[in-house]
Amino acid sequence: MTGETDDPERARRFRDAALPHLDEVYTLARYLLRDSADAEDAVQECYLRALKHFGTFHGGAIRPWLFAILRNVCKTAFARRGFGGAEPAEDAVPVWCETPETPEAQVLRSRDAETIRAMVSALPDAFREAIVLREINGLAYREIAEIVGAPVGTVMSRLARAFDAARRMAGGGGGER
């Protein structure tokens, strides 16, 4: 480690700013990588990188910054095993291919967390990422756009497709389209 990370003041500021978001970073990692051991490794690497580069963080919201670092970690180190691997381009995957049809008409309403988690986890990378950042981590579209490096309009359409795919999985309507 360099002398930079040994600065106790900086370490303390990093601790106060970044540690409260550990659960959220871990949550994103769990959904992106779909594996708890990989998620732990990625989050640890994310925090080490974040600490190392904390000098380049110029205030503002720290969550998007942490999420962006985590995303890079997932994309590079874990590409083969999960997130960011060789998946067809999102436009090439018709969302209805994902869907085991069920007779249930009720869309998600009374479903337990496990079922919804599984449903989100089954979404393709780009959709899964968008829906987790938005609906679970609660980021604004603009923040998501910055993290994933895409225009806000793309984020919007990914969310639309994510919800559409999830609804089909839940056996909800919209299938006639």
């Binding site: 871990y26 479903r111 967390a113 679970i136």
Partner: peptide, 11 residues
């Protein structure tokens, strides 16, 4: 349903 369910994970 998503916001009512605890979908996050604790580290």
């Amino acid at each position: 349903a998503m916001s009512a369910a605890a979908l996050g994970f604790a580290a």
